Computed example of a mutant assay.
Amino acid sequence: MSEHPTLIAVAHGTRSPAGRRQIQELAAAVARRRPGLDVRLCYVDVQEPKAADVVAAVIDEQRAQHDNGEQGRQPGAVVVPLLLSAGYHVRVDIAEAVAGTGFPVTAPLGPDDVFLESLRRNVPADADAIVLASAGSSDPLWVRGIREVAAGLPGRVELGYTSGSGPRVADVVARLRAEGARTVAIAAYLLAEGLFYRTLHNAGADAVTPPLCHDAQVADLVLGRFDSAILTTVGSGL
């Protein structure tokens, strides 16, 4: 691997203008923290460019540099999923995009203490109950990850989902009200704004935490994943 690999940041993608801007700002914050680092943002769904296209472009650039006698400066690449769990998009979409390239793929951003601490800071201290709201998935890795986050939150915590087969967030809020909870907070386990996040504000809770990407430490988390992958790859002799 070269001295200055490219960081390929792979987000899910959204139609929400606010959500798109937030993910772009996250990628820009990563680049500001590491001057000279080549950060490429791409997506697995909804938006362009797709991960496979960016991976192919980086490979083409490497080949061109090699052909021009610039092998010493050609970048390798590390793929960092801007996702909250090692679910389908990591195991299938991203894996297929990098197949045969030798580019390492890091662990996704979540679950991580950075997100847990962000949720804990933003949930009102007087909440009688918390609904941990996520997109929902039947993937076992996703389910395990969201349960780990729930276990780290204080007080009574119930799981609610914005999609999939699990209980809907609004239904969980209503049940908690019926059971006597006076102040219900939604801890939004969502990286950026979008359709799912907007529905949380109509779920009947007293407070909704902001998208996780607003926490300044998330950019450092991305770089931490990137650096760890480089150390692991170099240590393995690849």
Rank of each mutant, 00 (worst) to 15 (best):
R33K: 13
L37K: 11
L41Q: 10
L41V: 15
C42K: 10
V44S: 10
V44Q: 05
V46W: 08
V46L: 14
E48P: 11
E48N: 14
E48W: 15
K50I: 12
A51Q: 07
A51E: 03
A52F: 06
A52D: 14
A52I: 01
V58E: 07
I59G: 08
D60M: 06
E61G: 09
H66V: 14
N68S: 12
E70F: 08
E70N: 11
Q71L: 15
R73C: 11
Q74S: 13
Q74N: 06
P75E: 01
P75S: 04
A77P: 01
V78C: 05
V79W: 02
L82D: 00
S85E: 02
V90F: 04
R91V: 05
G100C: 04
T101W: 03
G102H: 02
G102L: 02
P104C: 07
P104S: 02
P104N: 01
A107N: 03
P108I: 07
P111A: 04
V114S: 06
L116R: 10
E117V: 09
E117M: 08
S118F: 09
V123W: 03
A125H: 05
A125P: 00
A125R: 08
D126G: 00
D126S: 08
A127L: 06
A127N: 06
A129R: 09
A129C: 03
L132F: 05
L132S: 00
L132H: 06
A135H: 03
A135P: 05
S137A: 09
S137C: 04
S138N: 12
D139C: 03
D139M: 03
L141D: 15
W142M: 06
V143Y: 01
V143D: 07
R144E: 15
R144I: 07
G145T: 11
I146P: 07
I146F: 11
R147Q: 15
A150M: 10
P154A: 11
P154R: 15
L159Y: 08
L159C: 09
Y161A: 15
S165W: 09
S165C: 06
V169W: 01
A170Y: 08
D171W: 01
D171V: 07
V172N: 00
V173H: 03
V173F: 07
A174N: 07
L176D: 08
A178T: 10
G180W: 04
G180V: 06
